Amino acid sequence: MITKHLPRALIYGILLIAALFFLAPLYVMLATSFKDAAQIRSGNLLSWPNSLNFESWQLAWSSACTGVDCRGLKPYFVNSVIMAVPAVLISTAWGAINGYVLSLWKFTGSEVLFGFMLFGVFMPFQVVLLPMSQVLGYLGLSSSLGGLILVHCIAGLAGTTLFFRNYYTAIPKELVNAARIDGAGFWRIFFRIVIPMSTPILMVTLIWQFTNIWNDFLFGVAFSGADSKPITVGLNNMANTSSSVKSYNVDMAAAVIAGLPTMLVYVLAGQYFVKGLTAGAVKG
């Protein structure tokens, strides 16, 4: 009986150790964010705070300095929300249409076009910084939230197209052909047949895009202006701001605030992400 249950116990033990290993940094950040300066200097890194002190959270949100700007992370957080929400929705919708065309409405050269689009999945983003900055300059979108939205839509298009195209190849073509015989056109088939069947891959793509866009630093630091910096740039500026005494509790609170939206997304919708992947998001 002991031998029978040993493999399962061993698996659970390994998973528990892995979970503790990956959760340890989050614990350190949370514990440090609730400590005051005296406890940080005298205590242990892993010790729990004597009392929950929310002053560092308030400072990180509304009054901590990022360079010469002492408004905390709030304006950067708002910028990230304004940038991420439309960028995620547009890139997901755009990828869904592309995947629909490339899988169910194939045309001459569609496979070649899809192959070229795949280059965007593997291309380092550093390669496109200069041409993207030139395009944004031509469009008058340099150093603006609109420019960041456009950059993230284009950068994420190859990945979203790949997700949807591979998912839609599993849809029986007879279903689409039957709808066409009944007189349904391109958009009616898309909205009445394909989209209702796309819930798993929609969840995968939305979560994937939101995580990538919210956590992005490269495009944020390269294409943002003084009033359009996302939260990752604000967090970096806050951590690198020189002061007489380093406020580790404020920095840790700021780091948790910056990562909180993506953590909430995975906690609330993580099961849909796993179901979407197993339903065919990376199949084909």
Rank of each mutant, 00 (worst) to 15 (best):
I2P: 11
H5T: 13
R8N: 14
A9F: 14
L10P: 10
G13S: 10
L16N: 09
L16D: 11
I17C: 14
F22W: 11
F22C: 14
A24H: 13
Y27D: 10
S33E: 03
D36T: 03
A37M: 12
A37Y: 09
I40M: 00
S47Y: 05
W48Q: 06
W48E: 07
N50P: 07
N50E: 12
E55Q: 14
E55A: 11
W61M: 04
A64L: 00
A64N: 02
V68T: 15
V68G: 05
C70D: 07
P75L: 02
Y76T: 01
F77Q: 01
A84T: 07
V85R: 00
V85P: 00
V88A: 04
I90V: 11
I90M: 00
S91H: 04
A96S: 10
I97P: 05
K106P: 05
F107V: 07
G109F: 06
E111N: 15
L113Y: 04
L113I: 06
M117G: 04
F119P: 09
P124W: 11
F125L: 13
V128E: 04
L130N: 15
M132A: 11
Q134N: 09
L136Y: 01
L136K: 05
Y138C: 05
L139V: 12
L139Q: 14
S142H: 13
S143G: 13
S144H: 08
L145H: 02
G146K: 08
G146N: 12
L148W: 04
L150Y: 03
C153I: 13
L157R: 06
T161R: 00
F163L: 07
F164V: 02
R165F: 01
K173G: 14
E174S: 12
V176T: 03
N177M: 09
N177D: 10
D182V: 06
D182G: 04
G185V: 09
F186Q: 01
R188P: 12
F191A: 12
F191Q: 07
I193H: 01
P196I: 09
P196H: 05
T199L: 12
T199R: 13
P200Y: 03
L202G: 08
F217R: 07
S224L: 02
K229D: 01
I231A: 06
K246I: 14
S247D: 15
Y248W: 11
V250Q: 08
A255I: 02
A258D: 01
V267L: 15
Q271S: 15
K275D: 10
G276E: 02
L277Y: 11
T278E: 15
G284Y: 08
